[in-house]
Amino acid sequence: MTAHPTPPTEALMLLGDMTWPDFQRRAHTDYAIVPIGAVEPHGPHLPLASDTMISEHFAARLAHDIGGFITPSIGYGIATEPYRLGGTFPGVISVSGTTFMNLVGDVLTSLADHGVRRFVVVNSAIDNTGFLCEAARMLTERVPDARVVIVAWWDVVGEQFRDDLATETGVARRDDHHAAMVESSLVMHIAPGAVQPDKLAGETGAASQPRRMRYHVYPLPPEATTETGIVYTAEQASAHLGERVADQVARQLEDAIRLEFNDPRGQ
């Protein structure tokens, strides 16, 4: 398989590197690609900014594939529910829902005020989603000809692809959530120098069988927590698997954006 690393920064158009005349020329026609992440624990082996790294990777792949410019990342997000994190661990550096929604809304509005009308918000933290949707709704009510697509990697990876991966690896999808096999593999591929794979030796996230539930309880019952914050196993994670997932997501992401903006290939 041919590797598809993140395109080098110098090959991309970054908003922060543009002059105002550069921006003025591109604002009315280009996609504004906005990476959104979070700072929170991802097991003992992944960096706190894993979500932001993943969003930046797919923003770069998308900009390389369809054009547009990438805005500075919004790296602080909504605090993920303890149940999704596998418990309460140090490292959740979050902002309130109101602050987050206002920040995202202000950024989108500022871009729209300068003529931007095509927005792609690349998000990798699930608890951000509702607030991103509200910010987009408010923008499009204010600027009716603006269009905003909010997308996360799990939205476009594909059900059949995930099912096939589960069959191949023997890791059921019900065991593969936060900081587990697929997310760990993505970060191993995207930012190998930021991962500590030795911390996975002997991990027992799945074997310990925490109590699982579909609702939220505060504080989280001890028997519903994991030992490491891996929900529930990352034993089969690898950079090779991450490359396969990243390539699948990048293809599907490009297709989704071209569809939603009526932007056929070769145009």
Rank of each mutant, 00 (worst) to 15 (best):
E203P: 03
H28G: 08
D175Y: 13
V195K: 08
I126D: 13
D175N: 14
D155C: 03
V171M: 07
D163G: 06
H240M: 09
T204G: 06
T225S: 12
S55A: 15
R244P: 00
L15P: 00
V245E: 09
P72L: 08
P8N: 13
L139I: 02
T226A: 03
G86K: 07
Y218P: 04
A246Y: 09
S50I: 00
A180K: 01
S238M: 04
F58I: 01
D255K: 10
M188E: 11
V34C: 08
A206Y: 10
M188N: 05
D30V: 00
S185R: 06
A224P: 02
R258T: 01
T226C: 03
V34M: 15
V148D: 10
M18K: 11
Q267Y: 06
R244I: 00
D247P: 00
S184V: 02
L253I: 04
M181W: 03
S184C: 13
A207V: 08
G130F: 06
H45L: 03
V120K: 07
T88D: 12
E10H: 12
L48T: 07
V107Q: 11
V151H: 04
P72Q: 10
E134S: 13
M213R: 15
F89V: 02
A38P: 00
V217H: 11
T71K: 05
Q252T: 07
V148R: 11
H240P: 00
A207K: 15
V95R: 06
M213H: 14
D30C: 03
T71P: 01
G158V: 09
G202R: 12
A136T: 04
E243S: 13
M138F: 06
H64I: 00
V143S: 13
A38F: 05
L85I: 01
P90K: 06
L259P: 00
S50G: 02
S184Q: 05
N262G: 11
D255A: 15
Y218M: 11
R211P: 00
A239W: 09
R265G: 01
T88V: 15
A239C: 07
E141T: 11
D255W: 04
P197T: 10
E159D: 14
E235G: 08
N128C: 02
E56H: 05
